[in-house]
Design a protein around this nucleic acid. Structure first.
Lengths: 332, 332
DNA sequence: TTGAAAGCGATACCAT
DNA sequence: ATGGTATCGCTTTCAA
């Protein structure tokens, strides 16, 4: 079995307290003693047990992150940014995907027990009351891509301004009949995007309207299905999708059906995932990695007690125009 | 502060041992006593500390996974498959990305201290001797996309057969001068793919050759740079890339340069990431999620002691033909 | 500078 | 069925 602090102490002929001091090079230990301890530790291949250490220090040195899924590019990037910063701050990262899990709430609570704090990404992961209970218990918490709760830190990407810019772009191209694809009730992000679109239409000096097309999931398959529905009847001027995956699914199906883009119909997405570039999809770029990184920093402030008042960060987004809306002015 | 087992015991008027029994509903406790304990626990919002529990049980109920990066689609999918199965088996998942980290070896060792076992993905994460030391210390270990070590479990995707199929496909199309893009020394997967290509050429009944073009990273930028080099001189018949990202970078640059595909030059990738579909990239599909899932299952067998002899899994891959090599027969 | 001993929060064995 | 207590591996006073 592994060597413990006692084994080292015995071999070095000192007390466990001294070994502990040496291992954390914290206190003043006589160099000679120190060497003896280090020699013994090296000899026994001693590695301090995190468990014992954490129990004594009453902290985990670990952060959690909860997200719905890792299959799309979006959450993977968020997690990546989070892990990078957390690691920099000397904290381990626990992940929890709620996809296809019926006991998500319990799993999150269990996770909170092994972390000093955690980040919850997206509203489709855990119920609000679970978040509220965690917050009430004093768990350090940061919400990402979730509607801000006054007392809880949050990080979100800007939706409204970019949705308006996107809509104006479509209006400028002559589009009048828009269809928004995606259920605004599934996520506040989607709701905000739709809201931005509607506002832009209201403010426009031309008559235009937007119809809402609800879908089950924000994935390629649903996008393709929506196209299937519309191929029978008249196509709108533009499909404004809640995310890139939906839009990509639509593009594939439209091309397969021989529909000419962007002359016949225009399609836009949201996120700017890698595939969007290759598909020539006009979309809105989100700083996904930065969302995660910012959340990690906020969480660290909470855990370390550097800050007590809640903060709400809003990161900028950017319209990216490609050939799915216009052949004219392309943005790389 | 949080309630401990002692607080509950005091409030319920029982010993901590009884509370412990109730919390794990393990032993037989008189219903009446049980109710009293549960009432006290609920009242105090008692949640057993993982730390204490793990220390006593001398296990973590957590698995780790080490990978180079999460930005590409490949590792994200592997991690996803891993997390799903690990969660099913009641284990938490710790992640560690070695990208841009100089103390990767230490980080891995530290991670091993808080896990019952871990998975190491790709050879570009940690040194072989670190893996060997971990194995020697008795840490349960599974290697993914790494050259198998006799005594350590491993999960890999088939490279050789698909590389040969890919090469034959190119030869059938009339390609004779091939360029393999990617450094075989960076990963055994890449080396195996190159090996498969070379073998197929040797076995072919036509004269053909492959040149090796080394690159810094397997990403889009490097792919684009390679194209830049070749635009000056003569293009080969086909670029066989070590992964999709390289190939996608090449496609973008080639199209920008107005080079006609696939008539002028053919390009192939490896992985079949989402963007490959939209770019019409001929590639080899890997069961990425299944790699992670299989690793999680193997690891669980090791940790639970169900199995002691090492196993080496080889998962099948599949050639996917698209328009980057031929306009004729497309595979969806 | 070093050691002894009291936690930290649970589990599990041995009594009763 | 329940309680007492040693134990897990470490940190952290308090003394010496």
């Amino acid at each position: 079995m592994r060597a413990t602090i006692r084994d080292v102490a015995r071999q070095a002929g000192v007390s466990i307290a001294t070994v502990s001091r040496v291992m954390r090079d914290s206190e003043t230990v006589r160099p000679e003693t120190r060497d003896r301890v280090l020699a013994a530790a090296g000899d026994l291949e001693f590695v301090p047990s995190h468990l014992g250490r954490q129990l004594a220090e009453r902290r985990h040195a670990a952060n959690g992150i909860v997200f719905p899924d890792l299959s799309g590019p979006y959450y993977a990037e968020v997690v990546l940014g989070y892990e990078a910063v957390a690691a920099e701050l000397g904290r381990s990262v626990l992940i929890l995907s709620t996809r296809g899990r019926d006991d998500a709430d319990d799993a999150v609570r269990a996770m909170a027990e092994r972390c000093d704090g955690l980040v919850v990404v997206s509203g489709r992961t855990v119920d609000d009351d679970v978040v509220a209970r965690l917050a009430a218990r004093g768990t350090s918490l940061v919400l990402v891509a979730r509607p801000p709760v006054d007392t809880v830190d949050s990080v979100n990407a800007e939706n409204d301004a970019s949705a308006r810019a996107l809509t104006r772009h479509l209006l400028d191209l002559g589009a009048r009949r828009l269809v928004f694809v995606g259920d605004p009730s599934t996520s506040p992000d989607v709701a905000e995007r739709l809201h931005g679109v509607q506002e832009a239409l209201t403010e426009a000096d031309v008559a235009a309207d937007v119809e809402i097309r609800h879908v089950q999931n924000l994935d390629e398959q649903c996008g393709a299905e929506v196209v299937g529905d519309y191929l029978g009847r008249a196509l709108p001027d533009a499909f404004v999708c809640a995310n890139d995956e939906l839009a990509l699914g639509m593009l594939g199906r439209l091309r397969a059906a021989g529909v000419d883009l962007p002359s016949r119909v225009r399609v836009t997405g949201w996120d700017d995932v890698m595939a969007a570039r290759y598909a020539g999809l006009t979309t809105v770029r989100q700083p996904m990695r930065e969302l995660g990184a910012t959340a990690a920093r906020l969480l660290d402030e909470l855990i370390s007690g550097t800050r007590t008042h809640p903060r709400h960060e809003l990161l900028p987004t950017q319209l990216v125009v490609r050939t799915s809306t216009t052949l004219g002015k392309e943005t790389p």
